[in-house]
Simulated scan of single mutants.
Amino acid sequence: MKIPPSTGPALVGVLVGAVAVMILGFSFGGWMLGSSAQKMADQRSAVAVIDALVPFCVTQSKADPTGSAKLVELQAITSTYERRDFIMKAGWATTPPTEAPNSDLAMACSKVLS
C-alpha cells in the first residue's frame, strides 16, 4: 500500500492544530490541571470556613466579661497585625476543638470589630 504524498502535510497540520488548541485552551479557555483546580478549591474552602467562623469570634468578644474594655483598646490600635495579635491573645479567635487561635480568623474578625 502506498501512502499518498499529501498525507505528510495533513499530519503536520493536525499536529500544529492540536498544539494550538491546547495552548489556547490552557491560556484563554479556562482549562486547568487537576492539581491547579485542587489548590483553588482548597483556597476557596479555607476562605469560606473563615467567613463562617467570623460570627463566632464576634460572639466570643461580646461574651467576654471585659470585652467592652478590650474593644476600646482594639479601636486604639492602628496596625492590622497588632489588632490580629490582640484578638488572638484575647482568645476570641480560638475555636472550641482547638487550643491555639487561628490567625486568619483573627484578621477577619479584626476587620469586623473595627
Rank of each mutant, 00 (worst) to 15 (best):
M1C: 13
M1N: 09
K2Q: 14
I3T: 15
P4I: 10
P4E: 10
S6P: 02
T7F: 15
G8Q: 11
P9Q: 12
L11A: 13
L11Q: 14
V12T: 15
V12M: 15
G13H: 12
G13T: 15
G13Y: 13
G13I: 14
V16Q: 14
V19A: 15
G25L: 12
G25Y: 08
G25V: 03
F26K: 07
G30E: 09
W31R: 07
W31D: 07
W31T: 05
M32H: 12
M32C: 01
M32E: 15
L33Q: 14
L33I: 11
G34C: 05
S35K: 12
S35I: 13
S36I: 06
S36T: 14
A37I: 13
Q38L: 08
Q38E: 10
K39V: 15
M40L: 14
A41G: 01
A41Q: 13
Q43C: 01
Q43S: 12
R44A: 15
S45D: 03
A46Y: 02
A46C: 06
V47H: 08
A48E: 04
I50M: 04
A52V: 00
L53A: 04
P55W: 04
F56S: 02
F56L: 08
C57N: 08
C57F: 07
V58M: 04
T59I: 03
S61M: 10
K62F: 06
A63C: 01
D64G: 03
P65Q: 05
T66G: 13
T66E: 13
G67H: 04
G67S: 02
A69R: 09
A69E: 11
L71I: 03
L71M: 14
E73M: 06
E73C: 00
L74S: 03
L74N: 01
Q75E: 05
A76S: 11
A76D: 10
A76M: 10
A76T: 08
I77F: 02
I77H: 03
T78S: 13
S79E: 14
S79H: 02
T80M: 01
Y81F: 08
Y81R: 10
E82T: 12
R83Y: 08
F86C: 04
M88N: 02
M88R: 05
A90T: 09
W92K: 05
W92L: 08
A93Y: 03
T94V: 06
P96K: 13
P96Y: 08
P97E: 04
T98N: 14
T98A: 13
E99N: 03
A100L: 10
A100Y: 05
A100S: 05
P101F: 01
N102R: 05
D104A: 10
L105S: 06
A106L: 07
M107R: 13
A108H: 04
S110V: 07
S110D: 11
K111W: 02
K111S: 05
V112S: 06
S114P: 00
S114C: 00
S114Y: 02
